[in-house]
Amino acid sequence: MVAQPKYSDRRMSPEDYLAWEAQQDIKYEYERGKIIAMTGGTLPHSQVPANFAALLVPHLRGKGCKVFVSDAKVMTGLGVYYYPDVAVTCDERDRNARDFLQYPSLIVESLSPTTEARDRGIKLQNYLRIETLQEYVLIDPDRPSFECYRRSQSPNWEYHSIEIEGTDFSLNDPTVYLASVSLEFPLSFLYENIDFPMEIPETAG
């Protein structure tokens, strides 16, 4: 979720959380009894998942896969529920799921200063425990970069990253490869319609 988490002192069981959260006006994530309220993020943080989904949906059409953006809850199997920015499942066991996914193959998080530590820390640990997950991707909306944890041989993971100097894709536009869905595309596609923050030149003192 591209949002700033706010933690609540309220603790409850997974079952109580699912029943309670379904009645709330905003989304809440859940980590072993701890409730985490999700608040709004920036427009670039929302644009990245939209761009990702625009690539995934036509590519996966007719292949028995489902693509979700932001509103789909994922259970990691350890009493933890998250709202990733993008989730893809091709598992029949998720076909009729109504409340949350359990068997995703690809999960994407759009980084922000307030959520990056969790995305790289506790979320990384919990996501990589999902038996069906093949790739966990991290995207920085404020600079061109792509990071991917890719399953090699269970329980091992490989780390892959792409980062370019500057923000001019006409000079360098590397190819991104997603093994989980057999998809290749230029890195610039993830940043379509995103204006990067202006760099302020240094002045002589």
Rank of each mutant, 00 (worst) to 15 (best):
Y103C: 06
Y103L: 04
Y103H: 14
Y103T: 09
P104W: 10
P104E: 04
P104H: 07
P104F: 09
P104K: 11
P104V: 03
S105R: 13
S105V: 15
S105Y: 11
S105Q: 09
S105M: 11
L106F: 05
L106T: 10
L106Y: 12
L106W: 02
L106H: 01
L106P: 14
L106Q: 08
I107P: 00
I107S: 04
I107Y: 10
V108I: 15
V108A: 00
V108P: 00
V108E: 00
V108W: 01
V108Y: 03
V108K: 07
E109L: 00
E109S: 00
E109A: 09
E109D: 12
S110N: 02
S110P: 04
S110T: 15
L111R: 00
L111F: 10
L111Y: 02
L111C: 03
L111N: 00
L111G: 01
S112E: 04
S112Y: 11
S112D: 11
S112M: 02
S112N: 09
S112Q: 06
P113W: 12
P113T: 07
P113Q: 06
P113V: 08
P113D: 12
P113S: 01
P113I: 07
P113K: 03
T114F: 09
T114G: 05
T114W: 02
T114N: 07
T114S: 15
T114A: 13
T114V: 10
T115P: 03
T115V: 09
T115A: 13
T115Y: 04
E116P: 00
E116Q: 14
E116I: 11
E116T: 13
E116W: 12
A117L: 07
A117F: 07
R118P: 01
R118D: 11
R118G: 04
R118C: 05
R118L: 14
R118K: 13
D119M: 12
D119P: 02
D119F: 08
D119I: 12
D119C: 05
R120H: 12
R120S: 10
R120G: 05
R120E: 05
G121N: 09
G121F: 15
G121H: 14
G121I: 11
K123V: 10
K123T: 07
K123F: 02
L124W: 07
L124D: 06
L124N: 08
L124H: 06
L124S: 07
L124K: 14
L124M: 11
L124Y: 05
L124V: 04
Q125D: 13
Q125W: 03
Q125A: 14
Q125G: 04
Q125H: 14
Q125N: 10
N126T: 05
N126E: 14
Y127H: 03
L128K: 13
L128N: 08
L128W: 01
L128V: 00
L128Q: 09
L128C: 05
R129L: 09
R129V: 06
R129I: 02
R129K: 15
R129E: 15
R129H: 13
I130T: 01
I130C: 03
E131N: 04
E131F: 04
E131D: 12
E131K: 03
T132F: 07
T132S: 15
T132M: 06
T132E: 11
L133N: 12
L133A: 06
L133T: 01
L133F: 04
L133G: 07
L133D: 06
Q134V: 01
Q134D: 09
Q134T: 00
Q134E: 14
Q134L: 13
Q134P: 01
Q134K: 12
E135W: 10
E135N: 09
E135A: 09
E135G: 06
E135S: 13
